[in-house]
Design a binder for these strands. Structure first.
Lengths: 218, 218
DNA sequence: TATAATCCGTTGTTTTTCCAACATACTTTT
DNA sequence: AAAAGTATGTTGGAAAAACAACGGATTATA
């Protein structure tokens, strides 16, 4: 257990919480550690969620099957990240699965206990709540930005919206993006090759320059 | 002040908080009431946000101007709803404005105070945090669902994804939707008339039936 | 280093969407 | 009930995106 805490003590969720407090936190939040083999289901569609997860080791993917049975990957969970937190707080049945991409270890924490601190109002509780609010709010802002891009009607506008948002975030006309072309196309909800063609056009029109992950707004 | 509290005491944020506790809460969270004339700016782009708002009276709209200066309405805020809460918890400068559509009254609450309860750990704090987590998580789930719809490549798929999500939520093949055609088109990010045409096609193909706000999946 | 695998851009064709304009139905007002 | 306003459906042409297929470049691997 101590070993697991060591791996996640500098996660965003546990930020600014003293190491000495971590183990008492585990008890308070009914921390449970579970191990999963590659390919195993960590959370399955339709099951009610009362705890959220903090990945201590391995890699997970959040997938969703639509009305036709088509699989789509919603996100990849890396160590120190939390998942299923939104569904733990709204009492809705999630419509997605979480699967282990490699052998993984997850620390589950009780969402009810987190938001209803114990009698003695331990100091770490304040910080935990603050961190959780930050994480969820941040996700919220990111989702809103993605929607802002996707809502544009043309691929050209989607690209320019994305790039100008990045430009603001990176506070520069020259930016580096985290996605490869396929990843960017998925993010914007368009087809890769069509997007590539559109990028070329933007370059020819003298609106942007780019090379691999580097982009410049002119 | 008492008058204002009366109007919002059954909002989601203040759910399950005793009326007697509300006024002490106001002090603790540094509650400030502000009035706005129709057309006035409630929050302006680029200004740092330390407090979030709870609309007690009137109507607000959240608008955004993109890189070309085009205005788009992100959401309409009705009484008892909160706004700007996500931006209050991530330390990001918001890229949107909030404007008063009619004369409005807003109660601003200190986001820091909410997540860092006072010494005596008042009982309402627990409930407030719980409620806030619920609201933000809920928004999160809704945004994710919208993205799920928008990510589909064709209008037909967007419609069917939306309808089947509603079908699950309303637990029936027959559903009533909250949007009119223009609203639904905006939600899905497509053009209204093209969407209408697609709906007709789906009806002809025997995949759905509909009449005004009523839809049935076959 | 050779080979395989992956990523990225290009092109032509097919499909879908947008857009504008108009017709019809429904609602609200007077 | 007439008139005006609003919401929805329809259509055809223009624009854009998807799709498939391919070639060159880069990266990973044997």
């Amino acid at each position: 257990m101590i070993n697991e805490l060591e791996k996640i003590k500098d996660s965003v969720l546990l930020q600014d919480i003293k190491v000495e407090e971590l183990s008492s936190m585990l008890g308070c939040l009914r921390g449970v550690i579970k191990h999963y083999k590659k390919g195993e289901e960590v959370l399955s569609q339709g099951a009610e969620i009362k705890k959220f997860g903090l990945l201590t080791e391995g890699k997970l993917q959040v997938v969703q099957y639509d009305y036709l049975g088509n699989k789509s990957i919603l996100s990849i969970i890396e160590p120190k990240q939390i998942f299923a937190e939104a569904y733990a707080y709204v009492n809705k049945i999630p419509s997605m699965n979480v699967e282990a991409l490699v052998d993984s270890t997850v620390l589950f924490l009780d969402s009810d206990k987190l938001s209803s601190p114990c009698q003695n109002c331990c100091s770490f509780h304040k910080q935990l709540v603050k961190n959780l609010l930050f994480i969820i709010s941040n996700k919220n802002v990111n989702l809103t930005e993605k929607i802002e891009c996707m809502a544009k009607r043309t691929t050209k506008e989607k690209l320019l919206t994305f790039l100008s948002l990045e430009s603001i975030k990176q506070n520069s006309k020259e930016i580096y993006i985290q996605y490869d072309r396929q990843g960017l196309a998925d993010y914007l909800g368009v087809e890769r090759s069509a997007m590539s063609a559109e990028l070329s056009k933007l370059k020819n029109e003298g609106i942007i320059e780019y090379n691999k992950n580097w982009f410049k707004l002119l």
